[in-house]
Nucleic acid binder design. Structure first.
Lengths: 217, 217
DNA sequence: TCTCTTTGTTACTCAAAAAGAAAAAAAATG
DNA sequence: CATTTTTTTTCTTTTTGAGTAACAAAGAGA
């Protein structure tokens, strides 16, 4: 499998996971920053290899093979991210690009040993779940901070947006995975939210609040 | 720099290090298992980028830029090998192919942090020196076992042949880096050598003895 | 000199990926 | 329902990296 094929699979996986439905050629073209015609070509190639179900004009979905292959790529990506953060002291906003390269290294043995070395983590540094060697994923119950009600309390367990800017903002505000967050109140005018993080009161915009996942406690 | 360019640089580096002279197009073609004409193409490309000194008909050598670039690739390769052996418990005969992939990951930060994480090792699992971030290499005094005289004693510090077969043979014989090796005598008929390894007497062929490096003690 | 080997050049081939234009199909609109 | 718009596909090209084949030139030895 070429790098490009792997990247397509990964994109389709993320899109279908979010939408729970077939994805359109254009949707793929957009997030991969390429042209629809290029996507069509690749879809034919992937269909040939029984990695996607491709019916012209109808969108694509992953076959079982494709889903497993995509999960293995995601697994590699996220395990390498854990490695970079836990072992090499990178911060969570620096790891994406490097993991993007490392995810294409081909060796099952390597990734399984890395998994063991890291203590079989179930989440990456952004709180996203890591598929195990069989592709199984442990889902945890999580809610967007923006959707809590007044006075509910949660622990930060993930971020939706993993861009470097957002993560750096969180660092600056002292919000990290594991932070205890109390939802105090929502401002009806701009939907901004008053929260208390580790005893500090803070006001965050709705955009921020709708990119933070918390687990209720 | 493409993978292929990096692989050429690395090959030229190894060839020139061994021979201390210009290398011929044909010599490169042979170890890279390709045709002389392909090599010529690449040499032009590398000369364009000021990575090699290429004078038609005269062979190539690395420029300072090229030498540094090659050393950085070797550095990555050998550091990843240390990682695989020390942290992921691979054996020394299993790591080459994986390191061959990992050496192409592009991130200076990554490799320097990996270096620190591993405790700034100076040799890889086969006893070969690891260039530091500036390309400096610490050479140690080492001799081929086949060239010792009777009753000299040394410690195994490296192998010349790093093929999986040879390394597995050494494992089977209980010879590893750090093994104390006493040179007992050489058989003049076939040049085979009697040695004592950790209190066990052993007879090894000349071929084996000329692929083992020892440091005299 | 003649011949052989080494080395280099030029012109192709091939594959992967992507792009553009135009055709075809599906969806939306009045 | 007919027409328009949007989406998707098809077909044709381009680009890039890699490599091959055939031929030309240089140099070495007899």
């Amino acid at each position: 499998m070429t790098f490009s094929e792997e990247n397509y699979l990964k994109s389709i996986y993320h899109l279908t996971a979010a939408l729970e439905t077939e994805v359109s050629t254009n949707a793929i073209a957009e997030i991969m920053e390429t042209k629809a015609s290029s996507v069509t070509d690749m879809l034919k190639k992937l269909a040939e290899k029984d990695l996607v179900n491709y019916k012209k004009y109808q969108g694509v979905s992953l076959t079982e093979n494709g889903k497993l292959a995509a999960k293995m790529i995601v697994r590699k990506h996220r395990l390498w991210e854990v490695f970079l953060v836990e072992k090499l002291n990178f911060s969570w906003d620096e790891v994406h690009d490097i993991a993007e390269q490392l995810e294409h290294i081909k060796s099952e043995q390597l990734i399984n040993r890395l998994d063991d070395f890291l203590g079989n983590p179930t989440e990456d540094p952004h709180g996203d779940p890591i598929p195990d060697a069989n592709g199984r994923i442990i889902k945890i119950e999580k809610h967007l901070l923006s959707e809590l009600s007044d006075n509910q309390t949660g622990v930060c367990v993930g971020v939706k947006d993993t861009s470097s800017e957002f993560l750096k903002y969180l660092d600056k505000q002292g919000i990290a995975l594991g932070s205890k967050i109390e939802f105090l109140s929502k401002e009806s005018f701009d939907l901004s939210v008053k929260i208390k993080v580790d005893e500090r009161e803070l006001s965050i915009s709705n955009k921020i609040a709708s990119n933070l996942f918390v687990k209720l406690v």
